[in-house]
Amino acid sequence: MSFQEKNIVASLSTFALILGFYSIKVLQLVQTERFTATNLFWLWGMVAVFAVIGTILVSIFAHIAGGIVHKIRTNEDPHIEDIQDERDQFIDLKGTRVAYTFSTIGVALSMLTFVFGQPPLVMFCSLIFFGLLAQVAADIWRLTLYRRGF
């Protein structure tokens, strides 16, 4: 697994966990009738902190673990190819396009909540949800392109 692939796996696992955590927390807030701006802002703050710190920590862990496994299996020092060549950039762009598509659909669906008479808080809440979903979808697509080729 290349340097870029490890980064994508780290990002994917982090954002999938955050998406799950966010969805469960929002459902809990709705069920317990604590769906207020204060609680939601706290949740958004948690998501932002987890997204930044989690991705960094999981990336570091993935590279260290990958290096140890490589050393054990081949008895060679791990060689890190941390350059981004044209294939990596191309796959990155394709992933970004998927993220934009999901985000666009997400924004449109979030705006629809106004049509059904929901408060702005619901719209912002679903915007964050679709933003996280877009990141997960983009990472899945990038990983697919790395594995399958194109």
């Binding site: 290349s2 870029q4 060549d85 294939r87 990596d88 399958r148 080729g149 194109f150």
Partner: peptide, 13 residues
């Protein structure tokens, strides 16, 4: 480029 790119090219991926 990276070695991964050479591998992908050789495999017609």
């Amino acid at each position: 480029v990276t070695r991964q790119t050479i591998i992908a090219m050789e495999q017609d991926k």
